[in-house]
Nucleic acid binder design. Sequence first.
DNA 1: ATGGTCGCGCTGCGA
Length: 257
Amino acid sequence: MKIASFNVNSVKARLPNVLAWLGEAKPDVCLLQETKTEDHGFPRLEFEDLGYNLALHGQKTYNGVAILSKQPLDDVVRSLPGDANDTEARYIEAFTGGIRVASVYVPNGQAVGSDKFRYKLGFLARLKTHAASLVGLEEPVAIGGDFNVAPDDADVHDPAAWRDQVLCHPEERAAFRRISHLGFTDALAALAPGGHAYTWWDYRAGAWPKDHGLRIDHILLSPKAADRLKSAGVDRKARGQEKASDHAPVWCELAES
DNA sequence: ATGGTCGCGCTGCGA
């Protein structure tokens, strides 16, 4: 079973790229982030034509997450518990093909010390609480998405330049570790030790041709899922296409149960 | 080079 995660930066603007990549990579499950459209405007038919069922949680202009699966999607959850005032579309979860999967778009945080940074830390704390309730389930669990955190200096092209900046600040790295330390395996880190498995390159300043990337997209596997981990990777080629997202897709392959 | 480029949706915001 192949599970992928892809921050597409607008599913409408990226439709040809995403469809072409799905046709090549053929994931069984794909977690999308930054779809940037309300559910009624989501290009459903194009994905259904490739054999995917859809679960959507979108909003206008910003954010938006989705799950594509070749298997039926059951028990869909469309918000992260813990803050009734949080209306941003950043979380969706479902049970499909014998595994519970979640697509998460963690807030960027904008700048350390800002209100948005505090919102990010609060979101990560809520995600930890919810992940703790998932890790103890009988079913395997995969939480994938754009975490907007580079866990380690090895995940950053220039750690000195990024030190204490948003995406790399010790407080958000600690918040990420509190989640993984619940018992999750970072699939990319487990199979690409030593880093340089970047997943995001800024559109600006020629970051992509210079490979000035960060590893901020992750797939976290519960113990029952991690026991089945066979391989994982980043599809860098997608980042080099015309009209590419600023993120590359990440994926992992699990052995059949 | 303290800049740069996207997407959304029509002005500047978010990333």
